[in-house]
C-alpha cells in the first residue's frame, strides 16, 4: 500500500497545485467581487432604469442557485460552443476547460456569496446608518467605512463555508476534462484497480486543504472580532 501512496500522492498533489488550488482561488476571488457588486446593486435604493439592472442581478442569482453546478459546467463547456446567432455569432462560444471552469465556479460562488453579503449588510443595525448619516456621511461613505467593515465580520464564517464548498466542488471539473486531483485519482484507480485506496487518499488531500482553510477562517474571525468584549457571544 505504501508503494501505491508514494506513486500516486505526488501526482495528486501536483494536480492540486496545477488545477484544484488555482481554480478555487481564482474563482473565489472573482466570485467574491461579483458577489459584492451583486449585493450592493440589490440593496440599492435607486430607481428608474436601475430597476432593470436590479432585475438582471436578481435573475442571475436565481439562475445559479436553482440549477445544479455540474449542469452549469456542462452548459458552459459543452453547450455554449453550439450557441449561434446568425450574422452575429456564427461559430459558437468556445472556452478552454480551465477557463470554462473559472467562469462557472465564479458565477456560482458569486450567486451564493451575494446572498451572504446581502444578509450581512442588512444585519448591521439601522442605528449605524442613522448615526453615520446624522454626522453628514454620504451613503457611499457609510457603506465603505461603517457598514461593510461590520458586515464583513458577520460574513466571515458563511463565506468561509462557501470557499470550503468551492474547493470540494472543483472535483466536478473532472467532468469537463480538467485533470484536477479527483480526475488523477480516477485515472490511477483505473490503472491499479485500487479504488478504495485511491479515493480515500484523494479524500484525505481535500480534507487537508479544507482544514488549512478552517485555520485561516479562525484567524480571520479572531482578527475581525478583536474589538468585541470577550464576554460577548457567551
Amino acid at each position: 500500500m505504501w508503494d501505491i501512496i508514494t506513486y500516486s500522492l505526488p501526482q495528486i498533489l501536483s494536480a492540486g497545485v496545477k488545477f484544484t488550488i488555482p481554480l478555487a482561488l481564482i474563482a473565489f476571488a472573482i466570485g467574491l467581487a461579483l458577489a459584492l457588486v451583486t449585493a450592493l446593486v440589490r440593496i440599492s435604493h435607486r430607481g428608474g432604469v436601475f430597476v432593470i439592472v436590479k432585475g438582471i442581478f436578481r435573475f442571475y442569482v436565481w439562475l445559479f442557485r436553482s440549477t445544479p453546478l455540474i449542469v452549469q459546467l456542462f452548459i458552459v463547456y459543452f453547450g455554449l460552443p453550439y450557441l449561434t446567432i446568425p450574422g452575429i455569432l456564427e461559430n459558437g462560444v468556445k472556452f478552454s476547460p480551465f477557463i470554462a471552469g473559472i467562469i462557472t465556479f465564479s458565477l456560482n460562488t458569486g450567486a451564493y456569496a451575494s446572498e451572504t453579503i446581502r444578509a450581512s449588510i442588512s444585519s448591521v443595525p439601522n442605528g449605524q446608518w442613522e448615526a453615520a448619516s446624522s454626522i453628514g456621511m454620504t451613503r457611499g461613505q457609510t457603506l465603505r467605512r461603517i457598514v461593510l467593515p461590520q458586515a464583513f465580520r458577520i460574513s466571515v464564517p458563511p463565506l468561509a463555508n462557501s470557499f470550503i464548498s468551492l474547493v470540494k466542488d472543483t472535483s466536478l471539473a473532472a467532468s469537463i476534462t480538467i485533470v484536477e486531483m479527483f480526475e488523477v485519482s480516477q485515472q490511477i484507480a483505473a490503472e491499479n484497480y485500487q479504488p478504495l485506496i485511491m479515493y480515500t487518499l484523494v479524500a484525505l488531500v481535500y480534507a487537508i486543504f479544507c482544514s488549512i482553510l478552517t485555520v485561516g477562517q479562525n484567524y480571520l474571525e479572531k482578527r475581525t472580532n478583536r474589538h468585541l468584549n470577550q464576554t460577548e457571544g457567551e
Binding site: G127, Q128, E130, A132, S134, I135, G136, R153, H227
Partner: peptide, 16 residues
C-alpha cells in the same frame, strides 16, 4: 446635518 448633531438613546457608536 452639519448644523445639528444627533445623540441617540442607544448611542449607536461605531463598534469597529
Amino acid at each position: 446635518r452639519k448644523k445639528t448633531g444627533m445623540v441617540f438613546q442607544d448611542y449607536n457608536l461605531f463598534p469597529h
